[in-house]
Design a protein around this nucleic acid. Structure first.
Lengths: 230, 230
DNA sequence: GGACGCGATTTTGCATACAATCCGCTCAAA
DNA sequence: TTTGAGCGGATTGTATGCAAAATCGCGTCC
């Protein structure tokens, strides 16, 4: 059974990701305590837990606010994500067991069916599994954790990634290169293919948030999260 | 001014790294509170902060213990570190500014002097700067943070890395390949050189802790931290 | 009219108190 | 002798209270 603080942490995290608490909004402890019907202590603890996720911004004696992600930071996160994922793909190409390779191949084929059925919802879910499978293929829990955390932090900005027309099909084609390279054990190729895939994902993100995001890119203070909701 | 909890966190972290609290040792809140002359509240907060660093192990309602790092985990950390550093080197080769390149070159040359003077202490310090410089060369704060965290987690296991005879000279030679590749903007080469460098660092670690560590490698339950102290 | 300084209020940080859970022990029964 | 249940102590989780710091509003001075 999770402790109250942990429960609160995920509760608050969900609220932030859902937009209930807008970026930049102040999260005062008493307010959250009242809202969730607990005392300030577990709220404090929950906020400290979230502090390390990059979701909120804690400044000593000055309270905590929902993190405002600038376009620069978002860009850096996408670049880092690409590099980490590419590394995972490379290691997977080298070290995946035959069973893992078969599973990856099977998953990829199933996703092909979803593309033909134009089932974007299930594809999005399978996509998470796809990338997680490649993380796991590194057989390195440290890398898995890093990749998973980064993915979670980027999640709010990917919501609409498969809404761009034809994006789901392009994604599958890119996956094809990645899977092919991994199955053949071609490390460098897997790296390159995955790097390109993630970069294209970022581009797709940019397209979905086309008008506003493009302009926002210039303004430093402009925080990226809002682009998603426009 | 840092809050008491933050101060405590680094205090406790130092104590763990210094071996004051042995791996596996129980860290009860009241005990720490008494030891540092504060109440349980900031101690709890400090422990939560440390919880995300991998330095301690928190199990709800069952207290916190100093993390016991198994050889498998240590191995994974070294592999991950190598991959991250290699990525940083690659990005540095691509994106470092001329000024950054000159600074890296200058630092490398200064380290050459330290090698000739056989000044292991200063070399170890400069080595940290060297790697940090390459992290910074990515111009990506996310990667910098990941790399820095990993390095910090590995720090206790590197203490003796430059004690192996001739290791300091080998290190500098390996750096030479890395620096050369970065300065020439050769991405793939920088990646490979750095990956090899970090792998050799791990080997050096293994040599220093030769007898015990080598045997320990086989035993799953054996925790790596103890090897360092033998 | 604007900027600076000062006090009141709000909010965080820390301490203490209480409740719930876990761990180890004893003791009894198979 | 071993195993299991039950009980008591110890420890963590949560609530509340208090003090210090920060923020905001207002008045004053330039």
């Amino acid at each position: 059974m999770p402790t109250r603080a942990e429960h609160l942490a995920s509760e608050i995290a969900d609220a932030i990701l859902a937009g209930t608490f807008a970026p930049g909004a102040r999260l005062d402890e008493q307010g959250l305590a009242d809202r969730y019907g607990v005392s300030r202590t577990p709220v404090r603890e929950a906020l400290r837990l979230l502090g390390t996720t990059g979701l909120i911004d804690i400044r000593p004696r000055r309270g905590v606010t929902v993190a405002e992600v600038t376009c620069e930071q978002l860009d850096e996160m996408f670049v880092a994500m690409g590099e980490i994922e590419a590394t995972c793909a490379r290691l997977s190409a080298i070290g995946m067991t035959p069973i893992e390779r078969r599973r990856l191949e099977a998953l990829h084929e199933r996703m092909g069916d979803l593309v033909r059925a134009q089932n974007e919802v299930d594809y999005a879910e399978a996509n998470v599994t796809f990338h997680s499978t490649i993380y796991a293929g590194t057989h390195n829990s440290v890398l898995v954790e890093i990749a998973t955390n980064l993915r979670r932090r980027l999640q709010p900005f990917r919501r609409a990634q498969f809404r761009a027309p034809g994006r789901i099909a392009s994604s599958h084609t890119e996956h094809e290169s990645v899977v092919s390279a991994i199955l053949r054990g071609h490390a460098a190729e897997a790296h390159t293919a995955m790097l390109r895939h993630v970069n294209l994902v970022e581009d797709a993100f940019g397209q979905v948030n086309a008008g506003s995001a493009a302009k926002a890119k210039g303004r430093a203070a402009k925080q990226a999260g809002s682009a998603r909701r426009e």
